[in-house]
Amino acid sequence: MTDPTRPLVSTGSFVHPALFYRTTQEYVATVGSFARAALAAGEPCLIAVPAGRLEALRPALDDAADGVELVDMTVLGRNPGRILSALQGFADRHPGRPARIVGEPIWAGRSHAEILEATRHEALINTAFARRGATILCPYDVTALPKSVVADARRTHPTIWDDGEDLASPLYTDPALVCADCDQPLPEPAGATALAYGTGQLAQVRHHAETWAQSTALTPARQGDLVLAVSEATANSLAHGGGSGTLRLWTGQNAAVIAEIRDGGHLSDPLAGRRRPRLASTDGGRGLWMIHQLCDLVEIRATGGGLTLRLHMTP
């Protein structure tokens, strides 16, 4: 049986259940108990779920709310690629204490592209926390989410909490395979501008991106963010991606701005960019982390032919 009140883990072990819920009442009862148990055990607790769910939870947490870090996942996890960095950062801030985290990265209304990257994130949680003492509970609204999302949750979570049962997931899959399945072909855009670049041309790349961004609906500050993200990605092409690449720019639905950087690189570490780097680090993960923080969605495709990043920004 599911018992969210019992101590779930000891230091050094990791538990990553998916919670399949059907009603708000069930959600509040299970997540609320989980949080209260964490506080009772003196364990740090983070709840990162959509704002509407946070509001439903607050009354159930009572006084415990003060001891729990509450975060709106639609803000933190707008780009799924930056959630893992935040979760690891929370655990890092409490060394030697098993963290209890509730993370709901997929909610009804997420786009297909966002769901793929959120699924990749769910798989990589298992890799990132493999040897850490932590419990990360991931609620899934099985009445509102597509069946494919629920099916993938069974592949990315070693255990499932469903209707009061705590069961091992027989469909749990190696994170690398799940990530490979997320590498679906990206749709070809219409009307993209393309610019090939190489060493010595980063200033031209930025000028090109900046000029183009001025014609979009992005605010000047967000235009600057786009140029910074493009600069980091294209510099990575020169440093780690074979020394050259191609930048494509276009706008999508609802005036969304998309920049694609394609080069000959590869992603040797699937966790690259998913942990806060040091400013002075030079391993390439710093640029990707920056890109995740600056953009609303980052689609990553690592294939034998190279690395493709699609950076999305919504006005």
Partner: peptide
């Protein structure tokens, strides 16, 4: 200077 990237910021911090 029209642009300073992350690595350059790190160099300034150093």
């Amino acid at each position: 200077v029209d642009f300073i990237d992350t690595a350059a910021t790190a160099a300034l911090a150093r």
